[in-house]
Design a protein around this nucleic acid. Structure first.
Lengths: 111, 111
DNA sequence: TTCATTCATCGTAATATTGCAATGTAATAA
DNA sequence: TTATTACATTGCAATATTACGATGAATGAA
């Protein structure tokens, strides 16, 4: 079928999956790392940096924006992108807790 | 096209993306959370727990196993799955650093 | 106004993912 | 041996993703 059965899972599980899915492409990871380093950038910078077509970069930026990782503001003829601090903190915590739960609960090791 | 151009990105970026991609489905998140809670489980447990067909669960388990999140050992007629502690720690750190880099580098806020 | 720049969106081709029924395989039970 | 149980694998249909050329919209410059 190709369609994910989100109704079978908790909101948290779907939220984690949605975020992870967006991180699940190296171009989007690269965009975020570039933004962390440079604070802001415009689409054109990333086209140079990544070596992907402008339309492709624009599409990745949209996905990052849709889940909230980044925000963009129109600045004259270009669009200035940067990381959304609140969302970044929220995602960081969500992932952090997800991984941490294992270390907290860790019991006898495996089968 | 439909094929990711991994050669454009660093090994770290591809590694993060690969891990994130596997976490990018709520069923796989649910499986990991279930394993964190119960320490071990077999395929049949998850079919009950998730409400997906046996073949589908098996496929998700394979993906989790391929990147190293979990390991499975044959135990008589069934297969016992559990979290791979080393990989879990590795992934936890990789994600942790990815998010932490922002808090360390944080400058003037955005555009 | 006209042109150039910057970016988003549309349309499309290639490929990947999701989900399941059907079937295959291996181990144990009868 | 035959049957059963527990999974994996195969094959397929539906859908999603990736990438890009072409085009559209908005801004600023000439």
């Amino acid at each position: 079928m190709g369609i994910t059965k989100t109704d079978l899972f908790t909101e948290e599980q779907n939220a984690i999956a949605q975020m992870a899915k967006v991180l699940g492409h190296p171009a989007r990871v690269a965009i975020l790392q570039y933004l962390v380093k440079s604070n802001t950038c415009i689409n054109g910078d990333l086209v140079q940096e990544l070596g992907l077509a402008q339309a492709t970069v624009s599409q990745h930026l949209r996905e990052l924006k849709e889940v909230g990782f980044i925000q963009g503001t129109i600045e004259g003829v270009s669009v200035c992108y940067c990381i959304n601090p609140e969302k970044w903190a929220e995602f960081s915590q969500l992932f952090g807790e997800f991984f941490e739960n294992y270390f907290v609960a860790q019991k006898s090791n495996c089968c």
